[in-house]
């Protein structure tokens, strides 16, 4: 193990340079942050992920945000285990009826100020599952959504751009 650690110490990092915040996301977020929230949060946001019926594709790419290439935590963003600790809910899936109540309860358990980011095509409007008896068809039908990140699934870079926009909005004047 020592050899491996030493080798890594000498090799250049794999981490990508920070991307620009997504313009579309910045525009979407303009109305979501008031001064009080900015003072409370600064440049650090805690994220709680909720799978509300995803195929697991979005989860794989959200996972990738923590690998050495994207290294989410350098932006002041981190995933937390409980909604009680979260500022942001990151919600995937078309929202199945079987997850409806769990999503609403997770939202209610999150202290204000809080934001909801929906992730993936089916979180927007149900996507390919929209017509099913088992799906509500979109996160915004259950909880208010502040930002939507598109893609099936969105790439880690797209997720990063959206989330960086969120941090920038929370840290800077409107």
């Amino acid at each position: 193990m020592r050899k491996l650690l030493f080798k890594n110490l000498l090799s250049p990092p794999l981490t990508e340079p920070a991307p620009e915040a997504d313009d579309l996301a910045l525009a979407q977020l303009a109305r979501s942050f008031d001064d009080a929230a900015r003072r409370a949060l600064g440049r650090s946001l805690s994220i709680r992920h909720v799978d509300a019926g995803s195929c697991n594709g979005c989860e794989l790419e959200i996972h990738a945000l923590s690998n050495v290439f994207y290294d989410l935590e350098r932006f002041g963003l981190r995933f937390v285990a409980s909604p009680r600790h979260a500022d942001v809910l990151l919600v995937t899936g078309p929202v199945t009826h079987n997850m409806r109540e769990a999503l609403a309860r997770t939202y209610n358990a999150t202290p204000s100020p809080k934001w909801v980011v929906s992730v993936g095509t089916c979180a927007l409007d149900g996507g390919i599952f929209a017509d099913s008896y088992a799906c509500v068809g979109g996160v915004s039908k259950i909880v208010p959504v502040d930002l939507h990140i598109r893609g099936c699934p969105p790439s880690p870079m797209a997720l990063l751009q959206g989330l960086i926009a969120l941090v920038e909005r929370s840290a800077s004047a409107a």
């Binding site: 799978d51 019926g53 995803s54 899936g93 078309p94 199945t96 079987n98 997850m99 769990a102 390919i128 599952f129 017509d131 099913s132 008896y133 088992a134 799906c135």
Partner: peptide, 11 residues
Amino acid sequence: LGYVHKGIDSL
């Protein structure tokens, strides 16, 4: 289980 039942057989 069953929380992410999306009704795929019907679709």
